[in-house]
């Protein structure tokens, strides 16, 4: 079957090849067919690489497109049955959201209503998300930690060689720019983290900015410099401590709210930084959790160690 010209052009443009080169398309069908028996590790990638090559792959592609089309059709049908935007008796107009909007400021104390809802009214769900992050990082550590059982001598040599190459090529430009920018990025992350109850942002956004800053630090100064202040001990303390802090606070809120007891934590004046009771510590806990998880994902995916 001959593909139409526009499709070929689109495909080549998407591939990143030059549109001016008239090279044939079918040249990476099976890059190393001989090596596949002796190196089973190469099998998965080469299967992924030549999608659309053989008949089986074409069938898989067709099946995938069919699944996507059916799913898109289902979603569009659902959209057709949604209530009209702005109707008086829509689901968002019921008493729950009215209570969130009208009394959220007095009951919880944060001027950012979204934070009120996700951290206190629906705090249990967000606690579940934090647990998911914790479990994800734990699973990554269990699977990818490079200890004596799952690394060979070759892997260790390759890692050491790449480390030596990094040290040798330790980049002056990146180092200087990172020295200039690192405090600003950390400050921005902390601002978003600590102002989650006053302005947009909060734990997840600020934590991922902090994690990205740690990743940049690791890239610019090398893993050893980061390990000097962020080693296994610090990592485990922060991670478990943040989760326990969150769990205690959310248990307290649920207990107080369910039994109708008075809230002992002062709410403060709305709009100041030390207001909104438990939201600020919860935001800090979530942010630390997310930052640790992101950095752990990065290092364990890359080197298999913190």
């Amino acid at each position: 079957m001959k593909k139409p010209l526009w499709y070929e052009k689109l495909e080549r443009w998407v591939e990143g090849d030059s549109p001016a080169l008239p090279e044939p398309l079918a040249h990476v069908e099976n890059p190393e067919p001989v090596k596949e028996e002796e190196a089973p590790v190469q099998h998965g990638p080469s299967l992924l690489r030549s999608a659309g090559g053989t008949a089986m792959n074409r069938l898989t592609t067709a099946f995938g497109i069919l699944c996507c089309a059916i799913f898109a059709l289902l979603m569009l049908t659902t959209v057709a049955y949604l209530p009209r935007f702005g109707d008086a008796d829509n689901a968002p107009e019921n008493e729950t959201s009215r209570r969130y909007i009208e009394q959220g400021l007095e009951e919880v104390g944060a001027t950012n209503l979204v934070t009120n809802i996700i951290l206190v009214y629906r705090g249990f769900d967000t606690y579940g998300e934090s647990c998911v992050l914790f479990l994800g990082a734990t699973a990554v550590i269990m699977l990818l930690e490079a200890d004596r059982k799952n690394t060979s001598q070759k892997d260790r040599l390759a890692l050491r060689r790449s480390d030596a190459l990094d040290e040798e090529e330790r980049n002056q430009i990146l180092g200087h720019i990172t020295t200039v920018l690192m405090p600003v990025i950390f400050l921005y992350g902390l601002y978003i983290l600590c102002n989650g109850h006053l302005s947009p942002g909060g734990g997840f956004a600020g934590g991922s900015i902090l994690g990205g800053a740690l990743i940049l630090c690791e890239n610019a100064f090398g893993a050893r410099r980061v390990q000097s202040f962020f080693n296994h001990k610090v990592y485990h303390i922060i991670k478990v401590g943040a989760l326990i802090l969150y769990a205690v606070l959310i248990c307290y809120t649920i207990y107080v709210g369910a039994n109708g007891l008075p809230n002992l934590i002062p709410l403060g004046t709305p709009g100041s930084i030390l207001s909104a009771g438990i939201i600020l510590p919860i935001n800090v806990a979530v942010g630390l959790e997310v930052a640790c998880t992101m950095y752990a994902f990065y290092t364990y995916f890359g080197r298999g160690d913190l």
């Binding site: 980049n171 990146l174 720019i177």
Partner: peptide
């Protein structure tokens, strides 16, 4: 500050 550095990298 950032874009030339990433280009350089």
């Amino acid at each position: 500050l950032t874009s030339p550095v990433s280009t350089h990298r």
